[in-house]
């Protein structure tokens, strides 16, 4: 695990792995017109074929960072590189082709009269013909398991269905990177599981790198390859889920609470009066660890 102690005088954070790096945020800062700080000296990267979870409490700067990745916002200081291009100094008008964003509130994303119109919106903007766009939309809807909703009105969809259609709207554009802002917030457990399975499939089947902003550490623990803890507009620690989540001091510092699996395991070990020997993160890992300790 890396606990990042930024040198305030260092102007840059160098790339970790230039060949595999799809996104590199280099000491970027963004201040909103009302003076509030969105991100401050933010250093962050995303490698090819990885799922990164940005974890932090409300207002920590996660959403602001995500909007930089698609070019919706530009840093007032520092730089953001996407697929080798600087969005601060270079052309960013077609950045949306590489980075797809699924917004937190699905109703803000589903603006078109029907589900089909909405999912076709991105492919049409990519310059596809009407028929090709329709085919891409249908394929994406099938991909997320929402093909039956194609002629429905967004207004009459449930929260979970809206989220699936929002994801299909981005998937239809076949982006290299998919960015999801709180993808499981306000969803019932069944839809949460579906979204979770989809995110894992994006990486496995489509080769899409995924960035997730969430304060649900259980969710992050289940799907992320790497976890970044965000506080006051900066990433202050990062590592694999077991490295990060088995550091209660760090989690407390981030203003979050430990994932349930971790809490159960730590409390179990404490009750048994022994040191935690393993670091189970997922439910199956926890069961195995408990079985092992009993035997």
């Amino acid at each position: 695990m890396t606990i990042i102690h930024r040198d305030p005088h260092a102007p840059h954070c160098p790339p970790i792995d230039k060949k595999r790096e799809l996104i590199h945020v280099d000491c970027a800062s963004h201040t909103y017109p009302d003076g509030s700080v969105g991100i401050h000296d933010m250093c962050f990267y995303v490698l090819r074929d990885e799922i990164v979870a940005l974890c932090g409490p409300n207002g920590s700067g996660k959403s602001t960072l995500l909007e930089h990745l698609n070019g919706l916002l530009t840093p007032s200081k520092g730089d953001v590189w996407v697929n080798g291009r600087s969005i601060t100094h270079g052309e960013r008008s077609d950045l949306w082709k590489d980075v797809g964003v699924v917004f937190q509130r699905s109703d803000d994303q589903l603006f078109a009269p029907t589900v089909l119109d909405d999912v076709m919106f991105g492919p049409l903007n990519l310059g596809m013909s009407h028929d090709d766009a329709q085919a891409a939309a249908m394929s994406a809807l099938e991909g997320v398991g929402a093909a039956d909703l194609v002629h429905k009105l967004p207004n009459y969809l449930s929260g979970g269905q809206k989220r699936l259609v929002s994801i299909a709207g981005v998937l239809a554009m076949k982006p290299k990177i998919m960015v999801l802002d709180e993808p499981t917030s306000d969803l019932d457990p069944l839809h949460s599981e579906r979204v979770e399975a989809l995110i894992l499939r994006f990486k496995r089947d489509y080769g899409i790198s995924v960035v997730i902003a969430t304060h649900d550490l259980d969710f992050a623990a289940r799907i992320a390859d790497r976890v970044c803890l965000v506080k006051n507009g900066s990433v202050f620690a990062e590592g694999t889920p077991d490295e990060v989540f088995y550091n209660p001091v760090l989690i407390e510092e981030a203003g979050l609470t430990l994932p349930q699996t971790v809490r159960i395991y730590l409390e179990y070990c404490k009750a048994q009066g022994r040191e935690p020997e393993q670091r189970p993160i997922r439910r199956d890992e926890l069961i195995r660890a408990l079985q092992l300790s009993q035997s």
């Binding site: 077609d94 917004f103 994303q109 078109a112 076709m120 919106f121």
Partner: peptide, 18 residues
């Protein structure tokens, strides 16, 4: 909504082609 539209390449025109 406008941000979400821009994020998918909105250029001032969208279809309602049912």
């Amino acid at each position: 909504v406008h941000q979400a539209m821009i994020a998918r390449g909105y250029n001032g025109k969208y279809e309602a082609g049912t």
